[in-house]
Design a protein around this nucleic acid. Structure first.
Lengths: 359, 359
DNA sequence: CTAAGTTATGCAAAGGTTTGCATAACGGTC
DNA sequence: GACCGTTATGCAAACCTTTGCATAACTTAG
């Protein structure tokens, strides 16, 4: 249906090259007469000409397209990231192709493969899993790539993410300040960059307050709602349940809320809850959920800026950007008077409960 | 970096055709010796061969790609739709390119243009705005297309959406049953298919209950949060404010919640709220939000099935599918005893307030 | 009148893949 | 020895665009 340069050339009696030049608005540059220019343009319109991006990409060896891969586009955090990336890329004149890896490393790998076949000009990836062979391959093939949110400690690639350690510190320190010492952490996918750093922050905060780390209180295995639901249930059934839960992601928090509701646990009265990620609806939840906010717009802006720079200056040094998280205090955490319990000696040095030090 | 068929041909000493056939696993079909097959395969591996999708698409005149356009990917409803579409398309062996039109008809049009240039094999579009010239062009060019959620009454194109009229009836009838008669409707973008039908359902429900339609109570102009916020504020400041609000979309409802909070309006005590769309977090809001649920998975399944059928059987008759909505009653609507007010005669036939009929 | 410059345009290759048609070499049949 | 059927492979066109190089027809300068 769609016509080609050749069709226009035939109709107007000029060569394909001339048509191409006219349609690129290069008439002056190639000194094509105004008359010819007009004839060609009108023929193009009549025939409903539309450039073939495949042929153009093939010839030019570039596509002006960026491949984006995220673990879960229905997760509010990622849908916001994608939205913001989309806006930024549009400004720079790039199109993009989004893949949802569904938190599955294999889908991610096949997404990378497919995007490489499509010859995208660059990648923006929030990687799932712990293996980065496929990412390394992209980098080593000199194809521009920026990792967002989820990157790898052991892989030198441009990246931008929130300071996860600091975010956890913010959340857990706040809980501690409110008197909590039995604080559970429901984590996301173990081994991932985001998760490990959030866990790290959690542990550091406890250690700094001389609170014993109880491995029983560190649970969970992915970033989904059901994980939050299940692990909250089991935390609640502990003989010595936590007084506060810190979740590694917004969906996990939603699952926690569901579990509490089912068990008739009132937040914050019976249990305090705080989460990493601050979805738009956090303040309208029951109760309004305290959360660690990530600067999603800034993450997207930085990611696109870095990618753009990498495309233009392939040789530049690689950078890792950490952005500041922000704690939004709402009403899901209650101040409690800590229980003074003498139980649970550890190695003779530390005791659970923040108020008793050095026994 | 990436090698081509020619590279492999040179390395192995066979022709490009043979290489192509081997890599398509067509060795038997073309009786290529096992030895040659092995040599070619190993060379392909050594050279890190990766097919060039541009060249292939150009040659084959198809791309196995579907273009998706939605108005707002950060809207939970659409992010779920996209997620589900992604899963369905993957099953059928299709890749896809997502565009976010940002509720802007111009961006949508340029998205369509760009996807046409990329030679996608089909479109799935949730269209914004009221103009469908660009959609018609796709259809008339015989490129398979399915509209989802937002389609056009006057345009004959395959489409699948929820029964919007019925959804509104469900919501408003429920409000009426609970004793409400001053029911406001905060609409989305006027003129869009989804909005007009939701509005229609709202009006029908009121008429059936002999409740006067008060145009003052029909407000709003797009599907975003801010619209909900603003219009709720102004509804609340009315001399005769509504006792219940029905919002046309989940983001609008979020805005309404925000406005109520600011004005210290307690839902459902001071005001009842119900919305179209049922996002995952609805039951955890404060209060748990009653909502009309759309079958997002089914919408995605149907859309992909219809698109697939259109690709395989271009001549089939076009179909419009309406799926059943479901009312999820939670706790944002309160039963009230209707005020018996004799005021506000209309044309002598109808009076506001559902309990007084025929004066 | 010749050389050089300008104007307006065309030729053909290149980018990588797919595929209809051809063919060479060989074994077998009549 | 003429003919046919396999087996294994190659040739070359086609998909559409871009672009370096060429060139024909003029004009102007010297």
């Amino acid at each position: 249906m769609s016509s080609t340069l050749k069709d226009i050339a035939n109709k107007t009696g000029v060569s394909v090259s001339t048509v191409s030049r006219v349609l690129h608005d290069d008439s002056k540059k190639y000194k094509i007469s105004v008359e010819t220019t007009a004839r060609v343009k009108s023929a193009a319109k009549d025939l409903g000409y539309r450039v073939n991006a495949l042929a153009r990409g093939l010839r030019q060896q570039k596509t002006s397209e960026v491949g984006i891969i995220v673990p879960d586009i229905s997760n509010p955090f990622f849908s916001e990231i994608v939205k913001n990336l989309a806006g930024e890329l549009r400004k720079k004149g790039y199109n993009f192709i989004v893949y949802d890896s569904d938190e599955d490393p294999n889908i991610e790998i096949s997404g990378v493969k497919s995007l490489l076949e499509k010859r995208v000009d660059g990648f923006i990836i929030a990687s799932v899993g712990q293996d980065f062979a496929h990412i390394k391959k992209i980098r080593d093939a000199e194809i521009p790539i920026v990792m967002v949110d989820r990157c790898f400690a052991d892989l030198d690639v441009d990246s931008v993410s929130v300071d996860n350690v600091k975010g956890s510190l913010l959340a857990v320190n706040y809980l501690i300040k409110e008197g909590h010492s039995r604080i559970a952490f429901i984590q996301g996918l173990p081994g991932t960059y985001a998760n490990e750093n959030r866990l790290k922050g959690y542990k550091i905060a406890l250690q700094q307050a001389d609170i014993l780390i109880d491995e029983q209180l560190i649970v969970g295995d992915d970033f989904r709602t059901f994980n939050g639901y299940l692990k909250t249930k089991s935390l609640l059934s502990l003989s010595n349940p936590p007084t506060a839960i810190f979740t590694a992601g917004d969906l996990i928090a939603l699952g926690a809320l569901e579990a509490c509701k089912e068990n008739n646990i009132i937040i914050p009265n019976d249990l305090s809850l705080i989460t990493f990620d601050d979805p738009v609806f956090a303040s309208y939840l029951s109760p309004a959920l305290s959360a660690v906010e990530q600067p999603t717009l800034k993450i997207a802006e930085m990611a696109v800026a870095m990618l753009y720079n990498r495309i233009k200056n392939p040789g530049d040094e690689r950078r890792r950007i950490l952005l500041e998280p922000k704690l939004n205090i709402r009403s899901s955490v209650e101040q409690i008077t800590p229980l003074i319990n003498i139980s649970q000696f550890n190695d003779g040095k530390k005791v659970s409960g923040s108020l008793i030090k050095g026994t």
